[in-house]
C-alpha cells in the first residue's frame, strides 16, 4: 500500500488585483477587483515508503500549495488524500507528528539561542521520549557533522551550517516522511553536496520518504529516482528521470579531436543522415546527432576512414534544457 495517496485535489484562491499609480491607488480605495486563481486542478499521485521524489515545476505552478495540503496546513476544496492512513487536514496533530518539513528560505530554529536549545525545545514540542531523542541526536550530530556548531547561536551560523541544523531539527522526532522545500537554495558547492549526501543516507538507513521541491536540477539528478512535474496546477509528468531523458533529449553533441587534417569535412563527406556538423577546424570537429536511432560506431568508423581520431567526447543535453523543453511542451 502506498504511503502517500493523493487523488483529485482541487484548490482555488482569491487574489486582490492591485494596480500602480496614484490615480489607481485612489480608485482602489473605493472598490477592489478579485481574480480567482486555480492553484491545483485534479492533482493525483502516490508515493511509496522509502522513495525520493523530486517535485518540480516553474514558480507559481502549485508546488507549495501541494506541499501545504499534504503537510496538513491547508484544506483543499475537494479531493482525497491519505498519508499513513490519515487525512492530513482532519487529524492535523497526529499527522504532523510523523512528518518533518524544511523550508530552505525560512528557519524553524530560535534565532538568538544556541542550536541545542532549539533542539531541546523541539523535544518538548514533539514530546519525544528521552531515549529516542538521545539516539536521534547522536546520529544526527554524527552524520551532519554538527559537533562544532551545536552550541553556537543560530544567527552566527553560515547558511550551509544553518541548513544542516535545520535538517537535524526536522528529523529529531523520527518522522516517516520528510518534505524539503528548496533545501540547497543559496548554498555553496560543498554544502550542497553535504546536504545531498545526508538526504541519501537518511533515506537509505531510516527508510525515510523524501519529497523534494527544488529549482536546482542537479539536486534532482543526484537524489531523485522519480520526478513529478507540475504546471498550471496539473501534474503533467510523473515518472523516471531516465525515461524523461530518453523521451526529450533530441540530440547529442559529439566532439572529435584528430591529427591535423587539411581538407575540410562537410556533411557530404560524412554522409550519415541525422548527423550534422556544427563546426569544423583542422584538428577538431563538433557534430550534432539528432534522434536516438543512430549508432555511434557508424560515425566513428566513417570518420576513422578519413582522419586519425585522438579523442572523442559525447555530451548529452543538459537537464536544465530538458526541463525548459518539457515546460514548453506542456505550455506551462
Amino acid at each position: 500500500m502506498p504511503q502517500i495517496e493523493v487523488s483529485g485535489i482541487y484548490k482555488t484562491f482569491k487574489v486582490a488585483r492591485r494596480s500602480s499609480g496614484l490615480r489607481q491607488a485612489v480608485k482602489s480605495l473605493f472598490y477592489r477587483e478579485y481574480d480567482t486563481v486555480e492553484a491545483l486542478k485534479d492533482v493525483s499521485f502516490t508515493v511509496d515508503t522509502g522513495e525520493i521524489v523530486g517535485y518540480i515545476g516553474p514558480n507559481g505552478a502549485g508546488k507549495s500549495t501541494t506541499i501545504k495540503i499534504i503537510s496538513g496546513i491547508l484544506v483543499p476544496d475537494r479531493g482525497k488524500c491519505t498519508i499513513l492512513g490519515r487525512v492530513p487536514w482532519k487529524e492535523r496533530i497526529s499527522h504532523v507528528r510523523n512528518i518533518g518539513v524544511v523550508f530552505g528560505q525560512r528557519t524553524q530554529l530560535w534565532w538568538d539561542v544556541p542550536v541545542i536549545d532549539s533542539y531541546e525545545l523541539l523535544r518538548d514540542i514533539y514530546k519525544i521520549p528521552r531515549r529516542e531523542y538521545m539516539n536521534n541526536l547522536d546520529l544526527l550530530v554524527d552524520t551532519l557533522d554538527l559537533k562544532g556548531i551545536i552550541n553556537t547561536p543560530v544567527r552566527q551560523l553560515s547558511l550551509g551550517q544553518r541548513m544542516r541544523c535545520e535538517l537535524g531539527a526536522s528529523l529529531l522526532h523520527s518522522p516517516g516522511i520528510l518534505f524539503l522545500d528548496e533545501p540547497t537554495i543559496g548554498l555553496d558547492a560543498e554544502s550542497k553536496i553535504a546536504v545531498r549526501q545526508f538526504i541519501k543516507t537518511i533515506n537509505r538507513e531510516k527508510n525515510v520518504t523524501v519529497i523534494l521541491t527544488t529549482h536546482d536540477m542537479s539536486d534532482i539528478e543526484a537524489l531523485a529516482n522519480r520526478i513529478l512535474l507540475i504546471g498550471n496546477g496539473r501534474i503533467v509528468y510523473d515518472g523516471n528521470l531516465n525515461d524523461l531523458k530518453g523521451r526529450f533529449s533530441t540530440h547529442k553533441t559529439i566532439i572529435i579531436n584528430f591529427r591535423e587534417y587539411n581538407s575540410p569535412i562537410d556533411d557530404k563527406t560524412l554522409g550519415i543522415p541525422g548527423v550534422s556538423i556544427v563546426s569544423c577546424s583542422q584538428e577538431k570537429l563538433t557534430l550534432r546527432v539528432d534522434g536516438n536511432g543512430i549508432l555511434l560506431t557508424d560515425i566513428i568508423s566513417r570518420l576513422s576512414n578519413i582522419v586519425d581520431i585522438v579523442d572523442i567526447s559525447v555530451e548529452s543535453q543538459p537537464i536544465d534544457e530538458l526541463i525548459v523543453k518539457l515546460y514548453r511542451e506542456y505550455v506551462i
Binding site: I73, R97, Y126
Partner: peptide, 17 residues
C-alpha cells in the same frame, strides 16, 4: 512572514504555540 505555517506543522495546539 508565513511562520504561522510552521505553527501548523507542529503537533501542539495553535493557541499555546
Amino acid at each position: 512572514s508565513g511562520d504561522f505555517d510552521r505553527v501548523l506543522l507542529r503537533p501542539r495546539s495553535t493557541f499555546i504555540q
